[in-house]
Design a binder for these strands. Structure first.
Lengths: 146, 146
DNA sequence: ATGACTGCAAACGATTTGCAGAATC
DNA sequence: GATTCTGCAAATCGTTTGCAGTCAT
């Protein structure tokens, strides 16, 4: 509901303008992170007039307010609504899917003292559709490794 | 030793040119990742003539050959010599330090099926020098969370 | 009515590409 | 000697900034 978002924004000292509610509402509908360009294009194609600059500025504000989290995806930044509280993100480089997980279960001895914030890798679904790199084929060990 | 690097490059189908050995040798001396601009500047200030374009092209080749790994650092890409074999990287957003760790110890139930490649966060040293965010001060839980 | 928000166009930094000359194999 | 590599300058991509007009409070 807009009033909810508006209150959320207001409580954080920022004006609840139409464009901001637009971006916030759009992000609430997305399961995966979206880039500024994507958000901009989607909103425009939906008939909403908003500038790319405003999208960037709004996202920066939402990130600072901890309402949205930013992920690096290839050469660009993608944004997603984010729950508050101590958690970290599992980000798949293949499909871009993001899963929030509890960090406490991920800190064995090898990472002692290191606060995990994001984990990048490949999810099970994308692992299956990976190029066939079976041992014995391609540039594997045994060919010319030193 | 140069001959070693040269052989390494040759065995991967790429010419062992002076510039490539230059970049490779430089990276071997670095403990932390370095950006293309940093590599370029350091080599030049050392008296070696090399173009920024060549640095980028060489790095791309070394990454494809699995000799070097690329890390996203703020708005740029940083590169570091990388051991082959199954391992993942622990990258500190504060100081940029990278540690290679064995991934097998990092896959509890919550990440089942997910292949971890990189972990971003904050190392213990940087955690201590963080801004004083004590509970009760600032935008902590209990203020207006919904 | 004031001050913050918005949009356009230009600026910006990192990276890539086109093409002529120089190196390697 | 053919092919690949190299460097410069220009182009590209994502993002930020300057400034005048618009909106929310």
């Amino acid at each position: 509901m807009d009033h909810q978002d508006a209150r959320e924004l207001r409580s954080r000292g920022m004006a609840a303008t139409g464009r901001r509610l637009l971006v916030l509402r759009f992000l609430r509908l997305q399961r995966e992170p979206r880039s500024a360009a994507e958000i901009h294009a989607c909103l425009r194609s939906h008939g909403d007039h908003i500038g790319l600059t405003t999208v960037y500025r709004t996202l920066a504000i939402l990130v600072r307010a901890d309402l949205v989290h930013a992920f690096k995806r290839n050469g660009e930044t993608a944004y997603r609504i984010c729950n508050r509280g101590r958690h970290c993100h599992l980000v798949c480089r293949g499909c871009g899917a993001v899963t929030e997980i509890v960090a406490s279960g991920l800190e064995p001895a090898s990472t002692a003292g290191f606060r995990i914030e994001e984990i990048y890798g490949t999810c099970s679904a994308c692992l299956e559709s990976e190029p066939p790199v079976r041992p014995g084929t391609g540039p594997g060990p045994g060919s010319s490794a030193g």
